[in-house]
């Protein structure tokens, strides 16, 4: 508070002072809010093609909005940081997943093939086929590939950190992963980042 303002407040009665304080508080809060850089912390725990999308879409979009973004990859999520992405999708046990042909005439594309779990589980290579169809669907609809979204995150300085324990647990070699991983850390290192973030998501 400036000296002149201090003198001014001394001559104010309570109502006037409250009014002055409210205005001042409001403008200070707005000032702080404007100067605040939003932040997002994501914990990515899934390693399938479908579940690879949410963390990379949200991270890349948040960084485009000017947010500070960190993603902690743990357990199966580490698959998303491999140099060679070989992500697959399984419709088995996922009744929410539409099973539609990404090619052929429209009437064929419109059919939702309700295939029983027992059949899906019994046909060798079923996941390979489902994964191939998903890649085609992604391409047909102009949806980004995981590689594209990951590159967008790297370009935008999204902080990619990986779980050290998982590497030991699954017997991975650090050479399997992209060099852009900024750090190999544990829960104790990521939780303080999550604590300070405005948005924290477990995916």
């Amino acid at each position: 508070m400036g000296a002149s303002e201090e003198i001014m407040t001394k001559n104010l009665d309570k109502t006037q002072f409250d009014q002055w304080f409210d205005q001042r508080f409001e403008s200070k809060m707005t000032e702080r809010e404007d100067a605040h850089v939003a932040s997002l912390a994501i914990i990515a725990t899934k390693g399938t093609l479908d579940w690879a999308y949410p963390p990379f879409i949200l991270a890349s979009t948040a960084s485009a909005l000017g947010w500070d973004v960190s993603v902690f990859f743990t357990f199966y999520g580490l698959e998303l940081l491999k140099k060679n992405l070989t992500l697959e999708v399984s419709p088995l046990g996922n009744p929410g997943m539409p099973m539609k042909m990404p090619f052929g005439p429209q009437w064929l594309k419109d059919i939702n093939w309700k295939i029983p779990n027992l059949v899906m589980a019994g046909v060798p290579g079923f996941e390979k086929v489902a994964t191939g169809l998903m890649h085609q669907t992604v391409k047909n609809n102009g949806v980004a590939t995981i590689e594209e979204l990951r590159s967008a995150c790297i370009e935008a300085d999204v902080k990619l950190v990986a779980c050290q324990m998982t590497v030991e647990l699954f017997g991975y070699s650090p050479d399997d992963f992209i060099p852009e991983i900024q750090d190999w850390i544990g829960a104790a290192s990521f939780l303080p980042v999550a604590q300070k973030s405005d948005v924290c998501l477990f995916i």
Partner: peptide, 8 residues
Amino acid sequence: LNCPLPIL
């Protein structure tokens, strides 16, 4: 292009 590519 589809979400979020136009924004990116």
